[in-house]
Simulated assay, not measured.
Amino acid sequence: MSPRAELPRKLSRRSPKGEQLRAILEDLIDALAPGDPLPSERELAERYDVARMTVRAEITALAAEGRVQRVQGRGTFVAEARVAQAAALSSFTEDMRARGLKPGSEVLGQGVVPADDLVARRLGLDPGTDVVRVRRVRTADGEPMALEEAFLPADRFGALAAADLRGASLFTVLEERFDARFPVADQQVVAVEIVGEDANLLRVAPGRAGLKFHTILLDEDERPLAYAWSLFRGDRYEIRLRQERRP
């Protein structure tokens, strides 16, 4: 059945047309599969007797939320579902597998480098101290999901510079090979634009929204064990929180 056949015939007079159109589009998106096309702005405007600017505004809002994707010259399509960050401390590999996706990675760089001021500060080291740096593109079902760089003190994790990390979970390698334990982590998340080489590696248009995570793994004594930053595609990843209000 075509997307047009799934749509209600007309709008009611009980609420604003824009609100009704938004609800109709959300229901349609839920019923379709990622990559399926939506009716054009012209079709929707004519079907529901609304201004094309109203239609465009609702589709623009859906695109900003990552529900749909616009392709120049082709139309608007249902976007891939977003992956939500797990509440518990877990690796990228664990996150993807929990959601039925196949995790993978492409190693862009791996070796020992001197810690710059930022890395040294976050690891509690002197600037210039040797650290192992691992830079990877993380994938889900073969599609780029995040760009990641991890830094670890070379005096303990020097062998990591030569480890095969192409399909490996860094958390698992640290736990099983180095007997490292990191029960807690400090994490900061900021919204950024994905630009330059990062956009190329993640296969998104420059200027698209991203989420950048800065994570410090802490050992049992809450000493810094590793520092990593991860840049996730904003159209494929989201953060969900459950919060409680204290009396």
Rank of each mutant, 00 (worst) to 15 (best):
M1R: 12
A5E: 15
E6W: 09
L7E: 05
P8F: 03
R9A: 13
K10N: 09
K10A: 13
R13I: 00
S15R: 15
K17C: 01
G18Q: 14
E19G: 06
E19D: 13
A23L: 10
L25V: 03
E26W: 03
E26A: 08
E26K: 15
D27H: 13
L28R: 13
L28C: 12
L28A: 13
A31W: 02
A31H: 06
A33V: 03
P34E: 08
D36N: 12
P39H: 09
E41A: 11
E43M: 12
L44A: 07
L44N: 02
L44M: 12
A45R: 04
R47D: 11
Y48D: 11
M53C: 01
A57M: 06
L62C: 09
A64G: 08
E65M: 07
R67V: 09
V71T: 11
Q72T: 12
Q72S: 14
G73C: 09
G73K: 13
A79Q: 11
R82W: 00
V83G: 03
A84Q: 11
A84F: 11
Q85D: 12
Q85W: 09
A86T: 11
A88F: 01
L89H: 08
S90L: 11
R99F: 02
K102M: 06
K102N: 10
K102V: 13
G104M: 03
V107P: 08
L108K: 09
G109V: 05
G109Q: 11
Q110P: 04
A115Y: 07
D117P: 01
D117M: 00
D117Q: 08
A120I: 04
R121P: 04
L123R: 01
G124T: 07
D126F: 10
P127W: 08
P127H: 11
P127Q: 14
D130V: 02
V132L: 04
V132G: 06
R133G: 01
R135M: 06
V137Q: 07
A140F: 00
D141H: 04
G142I: 01
G142L: 02
E143Q: 14
M145E: 10
A146F: 04
L147E: 03
E149Q: 10
L152C: 02
A154G: 06
A159Y: 02
A159Q: 12
L160F: 09
A162W: 08
A162D: 15
D164M: 07
R166I: 05
L170I: 12
L174N: 10
E176K: 15
F178W: 09
F178Y: 14
F178M: 13
D179I: 03
A180M: 01
R181F: 00
A185R: 04
Q187E: 15
Q188H: 11
V189T: 10
V189Y: 02
I194L: 02
I194H: 04
I194K: 10
I194M: 02
G196E: 06
G196D: 12
G196V: 02
D198R: 15
D198F: 09
A199C: 06
L201F: 11
L202G: 07
L202E: 10
R203G: 07
V204W: 05
P206L: 08
G207M: 10
F213L: 10
L218N: 12
E220D: 14
E220W: 00
P224W: 09
L225D: 04
A228Y: 08
L231N: 12
D235I: 04
R236T: 00
R236A: 04
Y237H: 09
R242S: 13
E244D: 10
